[in-house]
Design a protein around this nucleic acid. Structure first.
Lengths: 187, 187
DNA sequence: GTCTATACACCGATAGAC
DNA sequence: GTCTATCGGTGTATAGAC
């Protein structure tokens, strides 16, 4: 990994895929080593606290990427309706048309170390809050905006889950096609 | 477990709780034994194929209970709107106000043995189809009904996930309070 | 920085007494 | 039917060579 060919970001992205696809407990060091292209001992060189540190680094990178690619565009200078439309396109890219799972969603649904839980809570809340802010700007009362944003996040997470469960990206695509109307109706 | 005090159903319900709360891989035989009140070897007496058989029995019991408590009332003789309202009350009971996870949802999100996947696919699809049938009866075109039912199941699963992730039953309660209007609007 | 080799705990699973 | 004891394998984690 010294060579720039495989950067720390590359390693984190490969580890992330294992955690997203398998969940925390099922992501064994053997699988993580294989996916990252490093030996187990090398992983411990980069993450001295082992699997837990790997997963935390993966969570932090995921929150950074999610913030950059999904949340920050929500704060641009465009009209709210435009920002919502862009938000949906960005979701489509981020989750690969519904083929990728949400790391926070996967960790929320299964056993993880206690230290992770605050990341999950705050990650989901931040998502809801940022979306709610746009809806408020579009003219919705705070309470309505929060409720609608919360519903949207539930819908997105549920669509990812059902898409994965039914081995079809249709639920995700359908959600994307209807979410804008839901978020902006009566506006 | 010979005594009627702890029936096979009791054991399955206790095992189910472990699988729902931890996911398949994290549900170790030690935890399953402790939760069931039986030793590991006793579990193997009742489930000769081990953990996989336990999980399959748990899935099958969950589908039976879900069918009885949630899906069959959807086929009663009442008016569609009444049936939907009852469906929501039954969901509230089944998922303990949003405090319990959906077994299929948990298994859908993480690594499980290949044999499970058809149960997950068909369980989710059946849920969508039964709900869709009621909406069709209420006057919706087949295609619309299917789309709306799929959205509803995504919403429910997502609300359970977000409720668990944020350690609050509010998303689940909010979903319950709004789903009827969503399912029946323009009807 | 990466590796091979290894330590030790826990995993799923079984044998055999009761 | 349930238990204790134990198996072989894999899990996470480390030591030490290179």
């Amino acid at each position: 990994m010294t060579s720039a060919a495989v950067s720390k970001e590359d390693v984190l992205d490969r580890l992330a895929k294992v955690f997203r696809d398998q969940g925390y407990e099922a992501a064994s060091l053997s699988r993580l080593a294989k996916a990252s292209g490093l030996g187990k001992a090398s992983l411990y060189y980069h993450f001295p606290n082992g699997k837990q540190e790997m997963a935390l680094a993966v969570i932090e990178r995921a929150e950074m990427l999610f913030s950059e690619q999904i949340l920050q565009p929500l704060r641009s200078g465009d009209a709210p309706a435009q920002r919502i439309a862009q938000f949906l396109r960005n979701l489509d890219t981020y989750y690969c048309n519904g083929e990728e799972s949400c790391l926070l969603g996967v960790f929320a649904m299964t056993a993880v170390p206690e230290e992770f839980e605050q990341y999950i809570v705050s990650g989901l809340k931040r998502w809801i809050d940022e979306l709610s802010a746009v809806l408020e700007e579009a003219g919705l009362l705070r309470k309505m905006a929060l409720g609608r944003a919360e519903t949207a996040v539930c819908w997105i997470e549920g669509a990812l889950l059902v898409s994965r469960g039914t081995k079809s990206t249709k639920p995700f695509k359908q959600m994307l096609s209807q979410l804008k109307a839901f978020l902006l109706h009566d506006l």
